[in-house]
Design a protein around this nucleic acid. Sequence first.
DNA 1: TTGACAAATGTTAGCGCTACCATTTTATTG
DNA 2: CAATAAAATGGTAGCGCTAACATTTGTCAA
Lengths: 339, 339
Amino acid sequence: MKSTGVTIADVAREAGVSPMTVSRSLREPERVSAKSREQIAAVIERLGYVPDPAARALAAGRTNVIGVIIPSVTNNVFADVMRGIYGVIEGSQWQVQLGNSRYVAETEEALTRTFLSQRPAGLIVSGIDQTKKTRELLKNAPCRVVQIMEIGASPIDMMVGFSHSDGARAATRHLIDRGYKRPGFLAARIDPRTQRRMEGFEDVTRAAGIFDPNRILTTPAPSSAALGRDLMARLLEHAPDTDAVLCNNDDLALGAVFECLHRGIDVPNNMGICGFNDLEMMAAAYPAITSVKTYREEMGRMAATMLLQTLQGDEPEKPVVDLGYSVMARESTARKPKS
Amino acid sequence: MKSTGVTIADVAREAGVSPMTVSRSLREPERVSAKSREQIAAVIERLGYVPDPAARALAAGRTNVIGVIIPSVTNNVFADVMRGIYGVIEGSQWQVQLGNSRYVAETEEALTRTFLSQRPAGLIVSGIDQTKKTRELLKNAPCRVVQIMEIGASPIDMMVGFSHSDGARAATRHLIDRGYKRPGFLAARIDPRTQRRMEGFEDVTRAAGIFDPNRILTTPAPSSAALGRDLMARLLEHAPDTDAVLCNNDDLALGAVFECLHRGIDVPNNMGICGFNDLEMMAAAYPAITSVKTYREEMGRMAATMLLQTLQGDEPEKPVVDLGYSVMARESTARKPKS
DNA sequence: TTGACAAATGTTAGCGCTACCATTTTATTG
DNA sequence: CAATAAAATGGTAGCGCTAACATTTGTCAA
């Protein structure tokens, strides 16, 4: 039934030591004499012994599992974050266990419970909009917790992210600086982060006296390039004098660019287009597409690093890290100055 | 230390039954009287009892973990497959545990060992190019195994995929049918599946008497749209009379299209471009890009479904499923017939 | 009523490991 | 060289659950 029936007792017998010494040589080798350590290592190699994580977890009261809860496994943005997390954790003694909340708060709560029942070594959760109950569970968790993607005023424990509303503000100001007078906003699947980006857009356009709710188009459908084309088309019918769009993400921006190409609309001179996240293809597109760069892989790396630090007994320098964003100005908003 | 210190013994005491009855009511409710079942359910709810998976695994000699080994967590293709797998497994009693082999056979072997030491309920592995040792481990695994992404002659156990060389053959024939005379092939990161696509391309062009190794451009770098632009640019310098390209994947195809747009090359009339996988954005692009559609989410769904069937004691109808592919002909290869 | 049998429940033991404390061995010092 | 501390190792118990078997309770026909 077991892949290898070899137990710690077998190793101990063969090496002529007690199981306890074998156990120690695996977890705290510095507390075992060099002689025993080598003997044990040789036997482990020879017998192909692999510790049983279940037995270990039961005896030690904790696992080597780091739980990660994200709202989507397919969204490129989270894929990048995951790459960062995996990059740090792979090769260490810890293991990633992924949970997919599908943007549903109740699912997130259920996942949190499931993870906690496994006595994880640490947890990484997305965003700052947990339900009250989830927050409570995480606050009382017997492990450290890192919130990623966003930063906010009341961290549960640690936090790595950036301000989505500030990112959208900067992008909107960029459009205005480039001379666009009637900017719109396109968004799919309104999650809390989208909401805050929209607020940033509204703030800045309102302050400039050019806010117009008719130029804001949203849909609950999941984001895609096809949807970007569709939203752009609808915006052009609805408010044909719109001269720029801030898209909630890059898929939409790409679709918007394609729709303009299709209609023969001059990007950037008659339509400025800005995305959000700065996926790799934005720079490679033609015209190259302006986007708000976010540091997704770094976010994952940082979150995992902070967690590993705490697992080694250290504290991270700062419990809350703001990774910021950068507006990557490219052709799609490089409007020729008009008189 | 534990999130909830509630054990099965606590529940048993409160419900006035033995721990065994509680255990059974959780795993085989039909073997417990309705009265006990309700009582137990009420107590579980009241105390917030959650079974400890480690204790369960240790006692039962198996876990509820389904291990999935893929070569990349960030590649869209695998993200789609994962979505299919998660879709089937979420909500069931099983859990997904993801392993990332990074396209390295040794890493795959190590991951296989790690997973097997956890006594998984089942395994899903990518491709058919495992090392000999990995194959042996999987053959002797105490659980069922599904190979995905590809089909081949000697399945370890079950298999869901399609023929990459056939897909490439069909795409190449499509280019020839559309009147292209000097097709090239672009590929990044040569994995075994890329290799087989390349072979398919070579077969068909050779048979048509138009094979030219100078039109095949590859690089070990990971795939991206920027790389697609770059490869296209190099191909045009290297073999300027090339009139079509089959790209090993859609990122490259998108980049190739952008490079042509940039250079003012008429796609499809002076350059036909075909991708592979048919990611969502291919249809939304302008010009819409021809691609070989693969059924990635279905592949994940099917693999997970087959595994769950075996876990319930049934056998899947067929142990090897070929999901095929479809050439989605679009504008990027819709060349006007020349005399 | 009673035996025969099935359904429901309980008892025992142990999965493989590690925390905790006890003991032995080795190094250190006056 | 004894006294002491430090390093290395071992024994015991138990983590929370379930497999396997044992026992009790309920059902039904003769």
